[in-house]
Amino acid sequence: MNKVTTFAMPILSVLIIAACGGTVVETVDDTTTSITDDDVQAVDTSKFELGTSSSITEVSCTLSNGESSTCYSITINGFPSDRTELGPFCPTTTTTEAVDAGKWFDDGVLYDLTGEFISKLDIFYGDSNWQLYDENTKEVKITDTQTACEAAARPDVSAEYNNYCVQCDISYYSDTDGEGISSTYLIPVTPVQRSSAGSVDRSSIGVAFNGVVLDAAAPTEDILSAYTIAAFDDCVGHVNPTAGYHYHGANHGEGTCPGVDFEEDGHGGAFGYALDGYAIHTMLDENGDEESDLDTCRGHTDDERGYHYHSAGAGENLFIGCFTGETAR
């Protein structure tokens, strides 16, 4: 377990971690890219621009293969350092436009969570039970209190919050502006290739340079089966009681979400490190093209960057497919 969440909420944590957390990396029967020593680049901590109450220190650690190593202990404050506020998430009425609302994803596509989208969920999902708005007032039903948020932002959604657009305010969990829930992650100083890929499963994927955790796939089946939408903002991030603000996809440069610079040679820019120490780059290069030689984990090697990953699309509910390198226990 390499994630230490400093916010204590034991019962809820069990439920939420089942959906968005925990760290048990199992070996996958798979052969990933063969990586030579020349292809391995040490983690560059200068790329992190973390907010207040954050830190990076070097510590001894044990990797998933049992070997002792040195890791960076990265403590984040849970709030993106490149933004001053989160959201917007849920639209307030059925006429709310995209600029005032967040996002939702479905089968690889990232949609604007507009009022119109909310009003047509019954058509979208082919199920007449969807009704996230008041028929008379046209107001969207939103979990706008901490109690409502915590009853709905979990796999076993409380029945009274079926047919709600779920959003949680980071202020429920931090009294300080610009801070969220503090978490600490261990990342090997120098990546160590695994003999076979490691499953992500419920593990967090990595940490963005702006101090936000890249989380595992959102449990969309649980969310939708309760007729809820766990609204994202433009960065495909949202807040839950245990993880705080976290990402479920990479969507840079749209709406309220800051962009990521391309590399000098036009390659997709890096925006974070995976927990095995390999950098994660954007999906597209400056020409709007994807890499065509990615391995099953979504990584590849080039002379400039060594081995690194490319994130999946913003609507795919994932960043990478598996870990090519050892993670810390």
Partner: peptide
């Protein structure tokens, strides 16, 4: 892509351009 493990289930992880 290929099937990979997320949340104790297999999910298709794309590794070829859309």
């Amino acid at each position: 892509g290929t099937c990979q493990v997320f949340n104790s289930a297999l999910m298709c992880v794309r590794n070829q351009p859309i």
